[in-house]
Design a protein around this nucleic acid. Structure first.
Lengths: 268, 268
DNA sequence: CGTGGCCTTGAATAACCTCAATTAAGGTGG
DNA sequence: CCACCTTAATTGAGGTTATTCAAGGCCACG
């Protein structure tokens, strides 16, 4: 495979073809085999674990993660109806979560990347209420929820962290409700692109360009619009010189214009 | 004030004028002054607290609730930006939670009634990210989050309960995303009415009739449609003999038809 | 080099929104 | 207790946005 290397404005080297395979810039990457399976020396710790642990507590914290699990592209980490046992921290890869209505309509409820936690939907009923599908080969840390709860009782900082993760998800969904309820197509796409690039940037990738891991249809499902409308909106932004789009490749040329569209379509 | 009394199909007596003032059928109601401010003998316990406590633990659980607070109609329990200190269990009354975009558009993120918990949005950032507005005079139990966390460490059953409440909110918002992203106006209104009547019924009210506590505009904001469309859809359902509507009063005549509309508009 | 999945684009249609006028209800003060 | 005023709800006509249906192009993969 030819690897497309590009430098972003921070001077970080990023692999556009496989940016999904590591949160790290290429030059710092190590092979998976050299990484011990433990939170205490995980690169992603700051993303999915609380800070402020001393070394001996950190070691106990490693007990949260029982095992690792690989999920191939297109496969499910869990499905609607599965018994709930664990939360999952994404190490590598990219997921979508989605629910289906009785008559078969699908709603994507989120896209998740490295360092993010999925499975929270299962707590309330002891069964998952959505499907988690890997949009590319993925690797997750399996955190049995019993372990999480037990250690939470012991470590208030972990307890608070778990609460914050759940609260963050509630707040995220609130803003999706705003998006779905109040925004027009262009605003939704602008919000979507800005959110995606911001999260990728926080993981060491370019602030301006990336590869979409989902189809137009999946984007549309998430944003409450049809795939044709997604495509048309991308094309319009491209015509306006705001972004460059070619299939899954996206480059943001005018982030400020995108932000303006997001904040208010009718802004004078 | 003339009180409109009606009997539902279960034979329970319900006051339509003030069904919002108590979850209980009228004949079982006691005056607020006779109720001790404690979870251990609260009528709503089964709605907002875990079950399976023995009496001595129950007494410790009472420590969760620090105080009670009255919120008059139209006033806010908390606002976007307020420091987060507590969760609130609604004893009586009816709330909406809403967020505003930068350009002033409002999105109602939920309607909450007796026994439900609000304030979870504030945990992640130590500040509330939405407004909680009383749609009628309300009375809430103030549960300082520090107390909740402390007792959660001591009582696994409470810990699990807190997690379930947060997970339930995540799942609820997932289904709202489905509603906003995939459903048409009639389906949204059907889902809204069915959800409302189901929750009211769980609190001892009629399965078929109730008084809306929110305006058409607030319903529209929640469901992602304009107030005129809400009104038109109500009128259409009324013309079709599915419901009876007169201003805030709603009676569901054909729940099965409503369920069919909700499940699939295009159902043959 | 052919095949299938994904993406793009066009034209016609449907759903919902906007603007506007009217009616109904609720609250206030004389 | 009633008249007035304000807010909320209904309804109609016309416009806009996004959807639907359809055709064709691009790309990866065998």
């Amino acid at each position: 495979m030819v690897q497309v290397i590009s430098s972003n404005e921070d001077g970080k080297t990023v692999c556009l073809e496989c940016n999904h395979n590591s949160w790290q810039p290429m030059d710092q990457r190590t092979t998976p085999e050299t990484i011990k399976v433990a939170c205490s020396n995980c690169n992603l710790r700051e993303l999915c674990m609380p800070i402020g642990f001393n070394p001996e507590d950190m070691q106990k914290l490693d007990e949260v993660v029982a095992t690792r699990r690989r999920v191939k592209q297109g496969e499910r980490l869990f499905s609607n109806g599965d018994p709930f046992t664990s939360l999952y921290a994404i190490r590598t890869g990219f997921f979508k979560t989605c629910i289906s209505s009785e008559d078969g309509r699908e709603q994507v409820t989120g896209f998740q990347m490295a360092g993010e936690i999925i499975g929270l939907d299962g707590i309330v009923s002891d069964h998952h209420s959505c499907n988690a599908v890997a949009l590319e080969d993925a690797d997750v840390c399996v955190m049995p929820f019993a372990n999480v709860e037990e250690l939470s009782r012991e470590f208030p900082v972990l307890q608070r962290h778990v609460h914050k993760i759940m609260s963050r998800e509630i707040v995220r969904e609130n803003s999706i409700m705003m998006l779905l309820g109040n925004m027009r197509a262009e605003e939704r796409i602008a919000a979507f692109l800005l959110n995606l690039v911001q999260r990728l940037h926080a993981r060491g990738f370019s602030q301006s360009e990336f590869i979409l891991r989902m189809t137009r249809e999946e984007i549309g499902s998430y944003l409450g619009m049809k795939l044709e409308t997604v495509s048309r909106t991308f094309s319009k932004f491209s015509d306006d010189g705001i972004i460059e789009v070619k299939q899954r490749y996206v480059r943001i040329i005018e982030p400020d214009v995108l932000k303006k569209i997001f904040n208010s379509q009718t802004c004078s």
